[in-house]
Design a protein around this nucleic acid. Structure first.
Lengths: 194, 194, 194, 194
DNA sequence: GATGAATGAGATTTCATTCAT
DNA sequence: TATGAATGAAATCTCATTCAT
């Protein structure tokens, strides 16, 4: 977060609101400017172009998102607890910010492939956090040895992402957070009865 | 697939190619018409509007996709084999049609919410197939009893979808199909070393 | 009216209906063909192009319109009675055919200048009838001597036309025909109290 | 006329010229913009859509038209002189602005019913001016007592309108203004010799 | 730094007309 | 004669971005 740039933050916050309320494609620069209380032209003093606003929104919000998750995880002692914490934090943060949930799960996906590549880059630190947990779990002999880390990470992230998206599309009508333990058990023990 | 409507199918096939090659937003109706070898106006004899082309593309292709998966599954005896077959068929079909893989994993997601709702409807039969497998596995005592079916379905679909998307974004440089057994094992047994 | 060309007349009648019901600009050739019960292409066996349909509609309908007025007038003995008759016939014929009234007063005026020139040509016989009455009235010393015939004709036609148009735009809610004597008196004696 | 909106007026004037020169249907927004010396998009900063340009043209021009007639009439002492003045002003203003004459008599009539309703609304003040003269003439015992005001108004307006339209269609080859006294005499005394 | 008026490229869709059958 | 599937030209309006003030 650029500090002491009040306009910068005003615009970021305005963008999240405008996108959540109007949808990605109906979020004109002029609408964001109006909501932020600045002139259209002012946007271009702080952002290179429209895409840069969107990337920055994601960067700022994801930055906080990941930072908080990382903090929480550091206080946990083993991989299993860390994984549960990650799931809980992932769910709780999106539960706590409805606008952000809509923007990340639905609206920002409507961007073109080029923009999505940039968004993927921003996600990388989060994916690293997941990878670290997997590696740690393996070292602790809590998780299996021969795990294919990228694949496991895709299962974890894919499951969380799909779960949140379904919850957003169902208009957030149920409690996402209380599903965390079950998701955790599914990821660690799978479907099998054994 | 509507039979004996050669123009209809020409346009569907052209749309997949054009979208895969140019991206969703650069896929003008005139480009699709040209690739299909028909006049722009002809498109509108077969489709209500541009969105209708896209929905139809997804409907036709997903229809085949799901049908083939369902057929393969029916030949398997138990839930575990069925799940593996579903994963293999999911991966092999997208491996076999690069254009379709790009369109479903990347391009069609750029559509607006209204169109995505229609796309979700089309996906429902696939999700039902997954649900059936879960229920069957539970009945056979291969899967656990207390499984939350929607959640398990979200894990399975989310994992497959994320895995395929990563593969497409890595430009399909590795063999997706050979990952099926590992994905299957992850889904059934989880990360745990037990 | 071309005789023994049933399709020709079907198309003319369909055109009047379609235009009255949908308005000039929403009257596509395909709609007229459908209402007439023929294929689109068949239209072009009987009419050169769309404009030709419209000109023909006006020609056929106006032909009858003028013919009937001329017949009625011939049975009258003097210019004053003839003028009254013309007014009555003008009003009664349009009162008796709502579709035609809408088409001539509102819809056909939306045509471009070129088409309106052709429509004006078709109106000429009607204007001649008016001119004849004026000349006869002058000869009979019922009307003034020094009358500028084109100007008088414009007053008569302009008054009738404006009166009918107002009636159509008021959705034909009052009795147009009963206004004929008053219109006649206004045209012959003017506003003056003398 | 909105003051201090130079672009607004430029566009209005350009629209009159373009419509007069090219006809209603061949008057693309881009042509009007070019003639006005602005970009296409600028049109939409001042007008809601194309129809709004046309309504505004008529509103601005008719506003002036009626205002000038009303001013001139106010300086006259009796209904008879007022009627003559109205006719003279009607003719002289259209004589003085050939483009406007073409636009009001020919081109604007090609608009669809919805637009014509708006145009009719704009005409209402003019029709009120006529009504006032009729009422005043009746009060002064210059005009007859029992006059049906709407009908008389339709005669007056219909006569003027038809006269001007004929003059425009004859390419304005004769002097319209010098016909005013004769039109006035026809309207007040009619055809009758008496 | 801040403004906001002006720019202008770009795409969907309609519908009169044709022509092979 | 009759059909109707196919054609393809053509125009409104939006909105990201600029730049003079």
């Amino acid at each position: 977060m650029k500090k002491n740039k009040p306009k910068y933050n005003q615009i970021i916050e305005a963008a999240v609101e405008v996108i959540a309320e109007n949808g990605y494609h109906a979020s004109q620069v002029s609408k964001i400017a109006k909501k932020a209380g600045v002139a259209d032209g002012t946007i271009y003093l702080y952002f290179k172009n429209k895409e840069d606003i969107l990337v920055s929104v994601f960067k700022e919000k994801m930055g906080q998102f990941i930072e908080r998750i990382a903090e929480s995880i550091n206080q946990k002692q083993n991989a299993d607890e860390k994984l549960l914490t990650l799931i809980q934090m992932h769910f709780s943060q999106l539960t706590g910010d409805h606008h952000l949930a809509i923007v990340t799960q639905l609206e920002l996906r409507q961007s073109n492939s080029e923009l999505r590549l940039k968004i993927n880059d921003i996600l990388k630190p989060y994916l690293s956090v997941i990878d670290d947990i997997i590696r740690e779990g393996t070292k602790e002999n809590v998780f299996r040895d021969e795990l294919n880390i990228p694949l496991v990470r895709q299962m974890i992230f894919g499951t969380l992402d799909e779960t949140v998206t379904n919850w957003v599309m169902k208009e957030q009508k149920y409690d996402l957070l209380e599903m965390a333990p079950e998701v955790h058990r599914l990821l660690t023990h799978g479907l099998s009865d054994k």
